[in-house]
């Protein structure tokens, strides 16, 4: 069964790489962190706020510490983009009616969906790598051209950098599961993109409100966004709506894993069980 999923993943990539969408999203995940980087450094280098941007220990833009900065920025954009891709990758099978064509020749339904989820996880990791690589090179260039010329940190904790990479990729998975679940539930790309992104936006606003109330603060800790930030170990207050205190990494890991399993499992269950109609023309 694992071989079947891996083979189907390969053939998913055969299809997907011939679409415009992944390449457009890749261009966006490359460009947006660069815009963020140059937008902040060009306005702050040489100014009084330079120190704040570069960090108290003056290493925020130095390699390899800038890898972490790149991961954090790329993940923020990556979450949105991977949800769009996940909704499209699953939803278009209903819209084009191709799901019916796939299933009638004996392709297993759940291996087919699993192959899509696996490909999305791999593409999410690849997107983070590209966004982070761009940020890393960009920040080094910024230090060389606008800063004091030093781009390499005096000391580096590579194990910590690798941990951040793993954490960032894992942080994408519940969002992939969310978008895939909504796509299967609604059998529609458009509805899935709208609902998944809508949830992401509404949740971030809601969390800001909930954290103002003692009891509801505990509730908010079990939503995807706060758990994601808690898992990444971000200092509180880094986001526009989240408070200083975020849930600890262990609790956040369990919450994210729970979302991933429940949303992904329900998507597979629905995908396996429901009747498959013809093309919806989306």
């Amino acid at each position: 069964m694992i071989n079947e999923v891996l083979s189907l993943t390969r053939w998913e990539w055969f299809k997907l790489r011939r679409r415009w969408m992944p390449w457009v999203l890749l261009a966006i995940i490359t460009a947006l962190p660069q815009l963020s980087l140059w937008g902040s450094v060009s306005g702050t280098f040489g100014s009084e706020t330079e120190q704040a941007v570069r960090g108290a220990d003056d290493t925020f833009l130095l390699f390899p510490n800038n890898v972490v900065g790149g991961l954090l920025v790329s993940q923020v954009y990556g979450i949105v983009l991977i949800m769009i891709l996940a909704a499209s990758l699953v939803g278009t099978e209903y819209g084009w009616g191709s799901l019916r064509t796939v299933v009638t020749r004996g392709t297993g339904r759940w291996p087919f969906l699993m192959s899509k989820l696996l490909l999305l996880a791999l593409l999410g990791a690849a997107a983070l790598f590209v966004g982070t690589a761009g940020w890393t090179v960009g920040s080094a260039v910024a230090m060389l051209t606008l800063g004091d010329g030093a781009w390499l940190a005096e000391s580096a904790d590579w194990i910590e950098v690798v941990k951040w990479c793993g954490k960032a990729v894992f942080g994408l998975l519940p969002y992939i599961a969310l978008a895939a679940f909504v796509a299967v539930l609604t059998s529609s790309t458009g509805a899935a993109i709208g609902i998944a992104l809508g949830y992401y936006l509404v949740e971030s606003i809601l969390v800001g409100v909930l954290f103002n109330f003692d009891w509801f603060e505990r509730v908010a800790e079990f939503l995807i966004g706060p758990a994601s930030y808690g898992w990444m170990g971000l200092p509180g207050g880094m986001t526009f709506s989240y408070p200083a205190e975020l849930p600890d990494a262990a609790q956040s890991f369990i919450v994210l894993l729970g979302y991933m399993l429940v949303l992904g499992g329900t998507a597979i269950w629905l995908f396996q069980r429901r009747d498959i109609a013809g093309a919806k023309g989306e």
Partner: peptide, 13 residues
């Protein structure tokens, strides 16, 4: 089994 059901649906691109 080989099958086609209604209008065959493939990947348009």
């Amino acid at each position: 089994i080989g099958a086609i059901v209604e209008t065959p649906a493939f990947y348009p691109y």
